[in-house]
Nucleic acid binder design. Sequence first.
RNA 1: GCGUCGGUGGUAGAGUGGUCAAUUACAACAGACUGUAAAUCUGUCGCCUUCGGGCUACGUAGGUUCAAAUCCUACCCGACGCA
Length: 409
Amino acid sequence: MNFKIEKKLNGKLGRVGILETPHGIIHTPAFVAVGTKATIKSLNPEQVRDAGTEVVLGNTYHLFLQPGDEIVRDAGGIGKFMNWRGPTMTDSGGFQVFSLGAAYGKDISKITKITDPSLLIPERFDDSDAPRLAKIGHDGVSFKSHLDGAIHYITPEKSIQIQHNLGADIIFAFDECTSPTEDLKYQGEALERTHRWAERSLKEHLKLNSSVSSDFPQALFGIVQGGREESLRKESAKIISEINVDGKYFDGFGIGGSFAKEDMSSAVRWVNEILPEEKPRHLLGIGEPEDLFMGIENGVDLFDCVLPTRLGRNGTVYTKYGKIIMTNKKFRDDYTPIEKDCECYSCKNYTRCYVAHLFHGKEMLAGTLASIHNLYFIVNLVKKIRQSILDDNFFEFKKEFLDMYSKER
RNA sequence: GCGUCGGUGGUAGAGUGGUCAAUUACAACAGACUGUAAAUCUGUCGCCUUCGGGCUACGUAGGUUCAAAUCCUACCCGACGCA
């Protein structure tokens, strides 16, 4: 993997770059399509590519359970397995520590609303007997499979071994994504654990890389945590960027964990001011339009997010005036495309009333057409932002877009 | 013509004296979703409401009862059986 910064955003941390991987280049900043189980839900690779996507992200935990990492390895790696000819990444399973752990069965998101009083009170007291599918142990996490209930103990070493079998171009260290409801004490403990796991991930990664002779070894990103706490975020950025095994460091960085919408920008800035400038940074699991501007301005090179496809499947689509819900009554006789002037396949060929009809009829194509549009919308928004930096009009473009984006609803 | 069974909210279909404005499902309407436990989930769903409650409702019209979607009578409609 090779990363080159082409241009910087004046007075800010933002930059435009080129990330070279064994399976092709990524123009950064870039949006990574999420394909957890080696498929971008409801889309085939041609549709993903035609939406402008350059890179896709699979998931360690899910592919380990099904079909098994060795199957993927023997199929030729995740890219070949899923017929995606471009760059690939895999997440380490660290997010499932949260989604199947603290968040399991609860209405908790990694993005918390700071004004939500129920979340300001740490819920840790009476939490021990709450059902969880992920339990954190000393040197790893015990997962109870959501598929068959079998217990799997995932250590940093195990996660890296799985990811080497999956064979993505860029992989992530095994971390603990903490819940925004955790108190400061717990966040500190979890952070220390994530740092220990980071070093062990790197060590295992280097060991596995040294045993194969490749001109293009897999790249490993370390993950910064620290929740919403400034001191923890800064400490984490420093430690993760300094971790090395025999002088070998992480190839790039993920910024993970939970945020409050209101102070996500400062959290990202704290971290990116410390991380080494010459290495790529990936803001994990973030991807609303406002967040993309925020992240890019503050030095993020890569984003991934389930929203374009999940919202699409669930009937919500992006437009330049904001999100709209396709099943709303007013679209039943709307003969215009999802978005006027949109160049995506869905908008060039179908009307809102047709897409609304598909959703009402629970037709599979509904989710596909909406996902195509949403993925195109987000991927191309990032491309436009990239271009605006190259054209020296990032701030004008940002204002213009965001002013218009809040008009609907 | 006689007999039997049945007519419940947009639909299907529970309920067979009070705990029924009426289980449930679907439809409808609105909303949520940020490293995917998710083609998922939540709310509303007779009318009015100062959210305490009030009013009108289970084919139609009467009746019995403190109380009826539930019991009785007549009528209307439907299905089936016998003529």
